[in-house]
């Protein structure tokens, strides 16, 4: 790993001011993606601003149906929160299936969302739940936040402080993990709310996470696994790699969507 200067921020505003003085600084959340990326010499930031202990960015609050999760809340804490599980079990189940137990003790929702890995699980949840991503500067809707593969609407030096959403009437996430890496080859989060159905797909899109609007329309007509199974899914703009080609992933989108709807 290249040399770097380490800074530890105790809150979000301190983190923002620490990074503003750096040449090519990056925020360090749980580090479960960034540190391996740096070890592989695919990233070499001049500075790391560690926000994993930023006290105003940790914790889960629930008010009625509205859920707010601090950006530095770990996957383990999301998965194991009984109050959250009571209002939105689908996000707890999703978090409990990311990586492995040790990774879940360090990895955070804010880190995952900021990285926007095309095979990450959380982006599908936030997009399907119509979540709001709050930064130190503004609120960004999930629809505007996820811009492309590893690309988000975040500006330089902008930091996610929390994500919030209303728990859906029904919702579930189904993922087909790569048998070796366990990353989603395709993951589909389907949610039904008063505003209608939303279906978000991760692992498959060549531009990262995306909404499957044909399935949303079908589910608005009738919320059932058969509704999504009858939708034709184009292989255009889907990923092809050694693990599966675009046509294979297109079929998996249907299968995972049907499973998500069935489990919701």
């Amino acid at each position: 790993m290249s040399e770097l200067k380490y800074h530890k921020a105790s809150n979000a505003s301190e983190a923002a001011s620490m990074i503003s003085g750096t040449e090519d600084g990056k925020f360090l959340a749980g580090g479960q993606t960034l540190l391996p990326t740096m070890k592989a010499k695919l990233a070499a930031p001049s500075d790391l601003v560690d926000v994993s202990g930023a006290s105003d960015m940790i914790g889960i609050s629930i008010s009625g149906n509205t859920v707010s999760i601090g950006a530095m809340t770990t996957h383990a804490d999301v998965a194991g929160n009984p109050e959250l599980n009571a209002v939105c079990p689908s996000i707890c189940a999703l978090a409990g299936n990311i990586g492995d137990p040790a990774v879940r003790h360090r990895g955070t929702i804010g880190g995952s969302v900021a990285n926007n890995d095309p095979a990450a699980d959380y982006p599908a949840a936030l997009l399907a739940l119509g979540a709001t991503i709050t930064t130190n500067n503004r609120d960004i809707s999930a629809d505007d936040f996820f811009v492309g593969m590893f690309e988000t609407a975040l500006e330089d030096g902008e930091i996610i402080t929390k994500v919030s959403f209303d728990a859906p009437e029904k919702g579930a996430y189904a993922k087909f993990p790569n048998p070796a890496s366990r990353y989603a080859m395709v993951g589909v989060f389907a949610a039904k709310s008063s505003g209608g159905a939303r279906v978000a797909v991760t692992g498959a899109g060549s531009d990262g996470v995306f909404r499957q609007s044909d399935m949303e329309a079908a589910l608005d007509g009738s919320w059932s696994p058969d509704s999504v199974s009858d939708v034709s899914v184009s292989a255009d703009n889907l990923l092809s790699d050694i693990h599966g080609d675009a046509a294979y992933r297109a079929n998996l989108v249907k299968v995972m969507a049907a499973r998500a709807v069935a489990n919701a």
Binding site: Y6, K8, L28, G31, Q32, L35, D50, S52, A102, R106
Partner: peptide, 10 residues
């Protein structure tokens, strides 16, 4: 935790 994926400073 995986100690190969955490900085000592953290």
């Amino acid at each position: 935790v995986k100690s190969c994926t955490m900085l000592a400073a953290s």
